[in-house]
Design a binder for these strands. Structure first.
Lengths: 153, 153
DNA sequence: CTCCAACGTTGGTTCAACCAACTTTTTCGG
DNA sequence: CCGAAAAAGTTGGTTGAACCAACGTTGGAG
């Protein structure tokens, strides 16, 4: 056999950044998903909680805009967060279209716990990179994202 | 007005590599999908075609392994490629479990066309990066992928 | 010869992302 | 001031990518 492990991806794919990106992101998402479900949450739940903890109470639309989640998906995720007692949702007295969403102490606890699990995931994900390379990678990704999603980053 | 620029993602998300990765990959996938559908193909179709062009005729299972596509998804994509006359699928006389998949001239043509469209996508995706940074990014992604998907890269 | 592995195929499931439509409420232009 | 436009929350979908289980056929190893 010319190739003992004959299952390598072709050069044309291996050198295409968007292919590398989507492949790696898929792997990262898989790792993150493990951590999330182990912590009893989902991506959306964590993103929303973090946004609330960091930015304080907000309306659902604002939350969605801040973490890039569709309004309808925000509804579903918040329903679950409310059911678990991690956030509270009440009508905004100042604008009766809106709901004001607030984190509960249990929600902060959950956020911190999930955050730690997620940190371990980053460690595993970036294992082969030293500190400088990690910073460089984050910098490159940030610059690209900033270019393609101006205003949100 | 705690937030003057109201829709920025929270720091905690912005500094999480896996979040940056999945976000950017999503954007890259979106760009790529535009190019693919404009060229009348899908990701899977292009990946399979490229793999065939570069590695020559192969069985469906080998193709799937080479480009990281599930066997069942290979079947569906090949059905469409056969229908469009881009590949030929015939039983392997040497091993009657397998099919031998071969690119047609039309398939090569389609591959090249789609490849060019995809190159333009890479250009748009990496627009804010100079040549050195692009190489660095590709290098970092490759190292990470190699670490997490040994044998396939 | 038997048992197990590999292959192709069918028919699903899951998750993230998105979109359309509707109701209520606010805002804004004339 | 009033009517149109916009924003908010909600419901109910659709799509694409990835994956998984099962089955019949075939090949190969013991």
């Amino acid at each position: 056999m010319t190739t003992p492990a004959g299952d390598r991806a072709p050069e044309r794919l291996r050198t295409t950044p968007s292919w590398l990106l989507t492949r790696l992101a898929d792997h990262a998402a898989h790792l993150a998903r493990e951590a999330f479900t182990a912590a009893g949450a989902g991506r959306y739940h964590y993103a929303l909680l973090v946004t609330l903890v960091e930015g304080g109470p907000a309306s659902q639309a604002t939350l969605g805009r801040r973490c890039g989640i569709d309004r309808s998906d925000v509804v579903a995720a918040l329903n679950e967060l409310v059911a678990r007692g991690h956030v509270e949702r009440r009508p905004d007295p100042a604008d009766r279209r809106r709901n004001v969403v607030t984190v509960t102490p249990a929600g902060r606890e959950q956020t911190e716990r999930t955050g730690k699990a997620l940190d371990e995931v980053q460690e595993r994900l970036l294992a082969p990179l030293d500190a400088a390379d990690r910073r460089h990678l984050t910098d490159l990704l940030t610059r690209l994202l900033r270019h393609h999603a101006p205003g949100r980053l």
